[in-house]
Nucleic acid binder design. Structure first.
Lengths: 225, 225
DNA sequence: CGCGAGCTTGACGTTGTTCAACTAGAGTGG
DNA sequence: CCACTCTAGTTGAACAACGTCAAGCTCGCG
């Protein structure tokens, strides 16, 4: 792997790391391609690696005892995954699962830690990246805690449009069931809401292509609470 | 204020900071006492300070547009507050409100940042402390997302017992309404559940004193989901 | 062509919220 | 010392929101 050809992590690494540390990380890391649906880091495993998402989209999935999943949040590249384990030595609390083909660099945790200990600007940059995911998960928590299902589904569509796909028209790579896991409601509820919104000409769905027609109305619904 | 007489933050500071930096922080910080109900850091304000909770208990409160509150989590000393703002320059996303009389050291953010930039072991220790709160909030999110109200109320009672008061008998400093804000349900629901548990001899409440009688049953209810 | 996963729909039952009325205790002022 | 008020807590009934279930549909793929 040639780290120098990569984006985000490389950018920070090039900016703040010595040639020596850079090479050290290169030696103790591996770049992998994950297909849609593949698990990058698995809930319950030991935190041997930190993952940098170079391209693609990943869900931050918690799998409960009653085989119910919850999607805490969704992130698109460039991001750092396994942020929780930058701070804890706990086993992974969640799984990171690719929902679109993704490129990931896995770096051995202990090597990265050694370098972070000697370079605080570098570590602060990483922490800032890592905590982004926490923040997003907590914003989703607030949405779940305070809003009715319909507003929450609106929140999710808006989130996908604004922060993941950066367009009012996008290829929806989540199934209805996954949307439901994200919104913390039943799949039927998602389906009914989306169908109604199609009738009301708030959005349209052809195959996997979702187009937001009436953005203002969607925002209005989101704010209803 | 004499920083050296304090606990947690001082412990880290003494361990990792030079005499010079220690004094610098002392100059740019202030120790305050907050009474029950007082706001330590207010949602929406600029993040001018980082707070260290030396003693007391604090709720991590989000205030929604529809004047509905959510308690994301609760922490007891020693902890670092305002963790989100160790990473972001955003305004505070939440309020930190004392639910029992608390001692807090407020340190100017920019001064602390300067020192963190030059001392990575120190910053890593702080990050670890700060992210504790995130982790707890996310665990609560998972509970909210996956469980029915009754299990969640059980979770909260267990959490208070195990992590906040460290006893099966404790003085409940939260009102029923606050318990409801924590469990994300209505106050009536909390009341009914607690009443029923009293009848079933799972716990007892006299005035503000709550005693868990049947811990196993409470854990069983929590696991039902 | 047939299979299966994902999607859709409506009926039904459960969970949890809202509302309204009531009680108890704490604080206030005459 | 007694109203008065205010807040927290309590209860039950009516209602809305949401999940579950069961059946049928569609589309892509072997």
């Amino acid at each position: 792997m040639d780290l120098k050809e990569q984006t985000i992590f490389t950018e920070i690494a090039l900016k703040y790391l010595s040639e020596e540390d850079f090479i050290k990380i290169e030696k103790h890391s591996v770049q992998l391609k994950f297909k849609k649906g593949e698990t990058i880091l698995k809930q319950g495993h030991q935190p041997t690696h930190i993952a940098f998402l170079q391209s693609g989209i990943v869900k931050f999935n918690y799998s409960g005892s009653n085989q119910k999943n919850t999607i805490l949040t969704l992130v698109s590249a460039p991001k750092i995954l396994g942020g929780a384990n930058l701070f804890y030595r706990d086993n992974y609390l969640f799984s990171f699962i690719a929902i679109e083909d993704s490129d990931v660099i896995l770096i051995e945790t202990n090597v990265l830690f050694e370098i972070m200990k000697t370079n605080s600007i570098f570590s602060m940059a990483l922490f800032q990246l890592a905590s982004d995911m926490f923040k997003k998960a907590i914003m989703n928590f607030i949405s779940v805690a305070n809003k009715q299902k319909e507003s929450r589904i609106a929140d999710i569509i808006l989130y996908l449009s604004e922060e993941i796909y950066c367009n009012t028209r996008f290829q929806l790579s989540l199934t209805r069931k996954e949307l439901a896991e994200f919104a913390c409601c039943s799949a039927e509820n998602v389906i009914m809401t989306l169908s109604r919104w199609q009738n009301e000409r708030i959005l349209s769905i052809f195959g996997k292509t979702l187009t937001i027609i009436d953005l203002d109305k969607l925002k209005y619904i989101s704010n209803l609470g």
